[in-house]
Nucleic acid binder design. Structure first.
Lengths: 216, 216, 216, 216
DNA sequence: CATGAATGAGATTTCATTCAT
DNA sequence: GATGAATGAAATCTCATTCAT
């Protein structure tokens, strides 16, 4: 847990420098920060807590990040990168939007199990971005790339009209964000959520035409 | 903002205010708490900020709530009650699950406009409930009542099998929570979200059977 | 406990006015103050605690005493009066200094049992009189009258030389104050203390002439 | 006094002080704590006052002691150790109980002169140990060792019967505690106290057999 | 006479941050 | 690169006190 590893245990693909000791410490701090921020929120997390979880003292954190805010920003980018690389990986080679969505939902289950803190952090971050104390957060590029790629492919495949693309983007975000709120803590809830969303997307959850019966 | 002003404009005086004012003050504090907690999260919100927004001094808040934590709990119950009474109201008299869902989505738009802070607070609260700092939060009864009522009626109408009821509960939560994450700040996003979700529920967003066309 | 009664249940002798309701409340507050100050010290006792113990609210205390400090002063005079009236009573009619001392020690046992709080308060007060926060405390007249009376009678009887009178005053104070420190909480310690002091005064505790044996 | 100054005069600088200084700071805080607690009692002493007297800021005290209560406990152990080491030293080599008591009384005078604050602190502490605010205080081992040693030697020498040993312990405590209450502030009172107690112990203060004269 | 809402000052404690070692 | 003593600001909370009701 304190030596960062990619979501799936595979060696990190995009070239990170061959990790000297300093780099390892940096990653340990980032992991600790993600976990703490996810658990308690920005304001309630102290640098001392993060530092201790990473195995150093508060003062030492300043050798790696110039301020608590900067550490939050770095953790933010870090978490998005780790999680969405895994998502990108999960949809490779699927032939349809529905297949991609299903694969992604399955992967969500896995990520939530193995990287709970990162998902929780990301989920919380969207609410936390009050610029009053955090300053403007950078756009989470990996998430946008993943989302846009999926939409783009669906349009190319003809599963989505250009006009609907934007709508779908929103719905997609809604589902993912909702899922990380609802399915995060409880594995049962998580499984039911994923199953339910699959059925919803497949159109087999809600009866389209309710028995148009006699209703006073 | 920084000079405390009474809820109704005048500076507070010494001595006992006339009967009934105390309750008004309590509500003012609750409203301020909801707004501040929603904006900055529990840990980053100071009682001084809340008190000033409500027009009193920090110490006075302790006449109405015994601790910051207790204030959070009270605000939590308060927000759920206000929001879900509105939701209950929105689905009265609709004849089908889809109709109820559509009405509820429309009402969401309205609530998000007029009670942004309450929705934001509720949305955040689900992530915030780390018992380390907040203690165990009470069950949000109004939300559960609303959700269960909707499911119950759908089952009675035959739109949902008993077996699917649980799945639908989860999906329903996911959509609502996702919506409050994604559509909260930006009215355009909000509108697109609502529209997209309606289409998703109606089954007209994602093409069920992608043209199994010629794909190299 | 909250309706003040003289140490021995006898009706108070020196004329207090026939106690209207206000006077009763005043005494209840004084009793509560003595108990609280004795228990926690001046700085750690809050007016609210005292008021609650007396059955009213903090604000009401100000109808009877103009400030916390003034309440402390009043409690100080009150406790000394109650306790030393009882002491005066205990030595009436004894024929010798030793007899008076023995009677007084016995009475101490009784008072500590029935009026523990008052004794504790008096005992603590001698340390508490830092004028920084309490202002100058009035001389505790009842104590001085009791002490001086006892010495005066002893001198008249020829048990104490004029020259030793002052020394005896000091010793007397030392014994009484020591006793309230050591024997206050534990009844066994109290009994042993009283017994030991009697023996010390009688000259039968410490062997005067240690076996003048062969000591290199 | 209100501008923090280091123990040795200079204002404290940022950054880590050279080794060994930390221990000095700790002792400075303990000394300041003893002085302040003795002067004003636990509840009325603020950490800010203590810190300023020790030459640092209130927050810095928390590097050395985790809470005000813990600081009190540490000061308690510290004061007992300092004072009773001095007492132990004073009775070394005396040949009789009376000689030891006299030596101890003389030493009391000296200690009260040079370490007034410590004696006052110890004296107050016995009244202050209301566990409501201070938690359970540790046993003051140095005091018990001193007391028990003295009694033990007296019994061995045959000056005290086994049966009287317990009584003497109590009397001894009473005298010492009384002395620190009565003789603390005023040097004249102190001298008279010591002198009087010596006479009392020697049996030459109170006339044993009062002229059994004619008493109406 | 008593209440209780409110104030404003101050208490304890936490914490981001600095910097000599 | 890491430590840990120290700062100074701010946070939560308490409390003596006031005063309209």
């Amino acid at each position: 847990m304190s030596t960062p590893a990619a979501v799936h245990g595979e060696p990190r693909r995009r070239g990170r420098p061959p990790a000297g000791v300093a780099e390892q410490t940096r990653l340990a701090v980032l992991d600790a920060a993600v976990a703490c921020f996810a658990d308690q929120g920005y304001g309630s997390t102290s640098l001392r807590t993060i530092a201790e979880r990473a195995g150093l003292t508060a003062g030492s954190v300043y050798h790696h990040f110039p301020s608590k805010q900067a550490l939050y920003h770095a953790a933010y980018l870090y978490a998005f990168e780790v999680v969405y690389l895994s998502y990108e990986d999960s949809v490779v080679g699927r032939g349809s939007l529905l297949a991609e969505l299903n694969a992604m939902l399955d992967r969500t289950s896995v990520i939530m199990e193995t990287n709970q803190a990162m998902v929780a952090f990301i989920s919380k971050s969207s609410a936390e971005l009050s610029p009053r104390e955090l300053g403007p957060l950078p756009q989470p590029v990996p998430w946008e790339r993943f989302r846009d790629g999926m939409v783009h492919r669906a349009v190319e495949r003809g599963e989505l009209t250009e006009a609907d693309a934007r709508l779908f983007q929103r719905v997609f975000a809604t589902l993912l964000w909702g899922l990380s709120s609802v399915g995060l803590r409880d594995p049962v809830a998580r499984a039911e959520c994923v199953e339910g969303l699959k059925r919803l997307l497949a159109g087999t959850l809600v009866a389209k035409a309710p028995p148009p019966a006699l209703h006073p």
